Lab assay of single mutants.
Amino acid sequence: MQFKLIINGKTLKGEITLEAVDAAEAEKKFKQYANDNGIDGEWTYDDATKTFTVTE
């Protein structure tokens, strides 16, 4: 399945997509990506659109 991450950071904004088996795997990958890029914020997930959002 394809999942999307919307980044609303203080210095980094944008979207990325990835393939994952389920939402838990996608969340783990997205949070690792955010951590690697210094993004720390409030996370939400919309199951209907398979979209994660992180807002700093």
Rank of each mutant, 00 (worst) to 15 (best):
I7L: 05
I7V: 08
D46L: 09
Y33T: 04
M1C: 04
V21E: 13
D40P: 07
T11C: 05
Y33P: 00
I39C: 03
D36Y: 11
K10F: 06
T11P: 06
V21I: 05
E25Q: 10
G14H: 15
E19H: 15
K50R: 09
D36V: 15
Y33W: 12
N37H: 07
D36P: 02
T49V: 15
A20Y: 05
I16V: 09
I16D: 08
D47S: 12
L12T: 13
N8W: 09
A20K: 03
A24Y: 14
F30P: 00
D46C: 04
I6T: 02
G38Y: 06
K29M: 08
A24T: 12
E25V: 07
T44A: 14
T51S: 14
D46V: 13
I39Y: 05
E19P: 11
I39P: 02
L5C: 04
Y45Q: 03
N37K: 10
L18C: 04
D46Y: 11
A34N: 07
K50W: 07
Q2H: 15
E42W: 08
L18V: 12
I6V: 12
T55I: 08
T17R: 07
Y45R: 05
F52M: 04
G9M: 11
E19V: 13
I7W: 09
G14Q: 06
I7Y: 15
L18H: 14
K13Q: 12
F30K: 00
N8Y: 05
K10I: 11
T53N: 05
I39H: 14
G14M: 06
K29S: 10
T49Q: 06
T11N: 15
E25T: 05
A48H: 11
N8K: 11
V21N: 10
A20V: 04
Y45L: 02
N35E: 14
A26G: 09
A48R: 09
Q32R: 05
E27T: 03
T11M: 04
D46N: 13
K28M: 14
Q32F: 13
D22M: 06
Y33M: 07
K4T: 11
M1D: 08
E15A: 04
A48D: 11
D47H: 09
K50M: 09
K31A: 04
D47W: 14
T51C: 04
K28T: 09
E19I: 06
F3T: 00
T11D: 15
G38M: 14
M1A: 13
T53Y: 06
T51L: 08
D40G: 11
K13Y: 06
L18P: 01
G41S: 01
A34L: 03
F3H: 06
I6M: 08
A26E: 00
N35W: 06
I7E: 01
E15P: 04
L12E: 05
N35R: 08
L5M: 14
Y33A: 14
D47Q: 11
G38S: 05
K13H: 14
A24L: 07
G41V: 01
M1E: 13
A26S: 03
K31V: 10
D40E: 03
T55Q: 04
T55Y: 04
K10V: 15
A34H: 01
M1P: 10
G9R: 06
E19Y: 14
G41P: 02
A26F: 00
K31H: 08
N35V: 10
T11E: 08
F52C: 01
E19A: 13
D36M: 08
Y33E: 10
D47C: 03
D46K: 06
L12G: 06
Q2N: 15
A20D: 10
A34P: 01
L5F: 12
D22H: 10
N35Q: 11
I6A: 03
T17C: 04
G14D: 03
E25K: 12
A20R: 09
Q32S: 07
K31L: 12
E56N: 02
K13G: 14
E25I: 05
F3I: 01
G41Q: 01
V21R: 10
E15Q: 05
A34Y: 02
F52Y: 14
F52R: 00
T17Q: 12
T53R: 05
M1H: 09
K28D: 08
L18T: 10
F3M: 02
D47N: 14
A34C: 04
I6K: 09
K28F: 11
V54Y: 01
L5A: 07
A34W: 02
D36L: 09
A23C: 03
Q32T: 13
T51D: 03
K50G: 05
M1W: 05
K29I: 12
A24D: 10
A34I: 09
D46H: 06
E15D: 08
T55A: 04
K50E: 11
I7S: 06
T44I: 05
L5Q: 00
G38F: 11
T17W: 06
K29Y: 08
D46W: 11
N37I: 11
K28G: 09
A48P: 10
L12Q: 12
A23Y: 14
T49I: 12
T53D: 02
M1K: 05
A34S: 07
Q32Y: 07
G9F: 10
T11K: 09
E19G: 11
V54S: 02
I6E: 04
V54A: 06
T51P: 00
A20C: 03
D47Y: 09
I7D: 01
K4F: 08
G38E: 12
T44Y: 15
L12Y: 14
K29N: 07
E56L: 04
Q32M: 12
L12H: 10
W43S: 01
A20F: 09
T49Y: 12
E27I: 06
T51V: 12
N35M: 05
E27W: 07
A23K: 15
D40W: 11
Y45S: 03
I6Y: 08
N8D: 14
L12I: 14
D22Q: 06
Y45D: 01
K10S: 14
D36N: 14
V21H: 10
E15W: 03
G9T: 05
T53K: 11
W43N: 00
A48M: 05
E25R: 08
K31D: 02
E25P: 02
N37D: 07
Q32E: 12
F30G: 07
